[in-house]
């Protein structure tokens, strides 16, 4: 987990350096500076989250000498092997987007179906 934090912290510093360098070189060109600024901000946010998350993380994968016996039977959660909802969510997403362009009625119908599918997907995830 420390590697994860270091990775994003280094990336954030790089992003800030790049944005500042670009601002000094081409501050009259606002779009590029804004894009790099947003990129740096996103990296800072991720690095900040990583720092907070790292405090409570205790990952078996981080210990180079972790004995397998110690983690035997550990609860990893249940991995579902099939669900009908993902393909329905994807199909409804496509229809909602297409409907937004060509048919408001289709957009509304597909949008409602999308919400229902997401709701059922969430309910299923909570169970299994």
């Amino acid at each position: 987990m420390k590697t994860f934090v270091g990775l994003f912290a280094a990336s954030a510093l790089f992003g800030i350096a790049l944005a500042v360098a670009y601002w000094f070189v081409a501050h009259e060109e606002a779009t590029g500076a804004a894009l790099l600024g947003c990129m740096a901000a996103a990296l800072v946010f991720t690095a900040g989250y990583a720092v907070v998350a790292e405090r409570s993380a205790d990952l078996d994968g981080d210990d180079p000498n972790e004995p397998l016996e110690r983690v035997a039977g550990e609860e990893l959660g249940i991995f579902t092997t099939r669900s009908a909802w993902p393909i329905l969510v994807a199909s409804c997403s496509l229809l909602t987007l297409a409907g937004t362009l060509w048919s408001p009625a289709l957009a509304v119908a597909a949008g409602i179906a999308l919400i229902l599918c997401c709701w059922r997907l969430g309910a299923e995830s909570a169970r299994v």
């Binding site: 590697t3 994860f4 078996d60 210990d63 972790e66």
Partner: peptide
């Protein structure tokens, strides 16, 4: 980042 097996460190 989170699902590595025991002993499978990032490095």
């Amino acid at each position: 980042f989170l699902f590595r097996a025991p002993g499978m460190t990032m490095w």
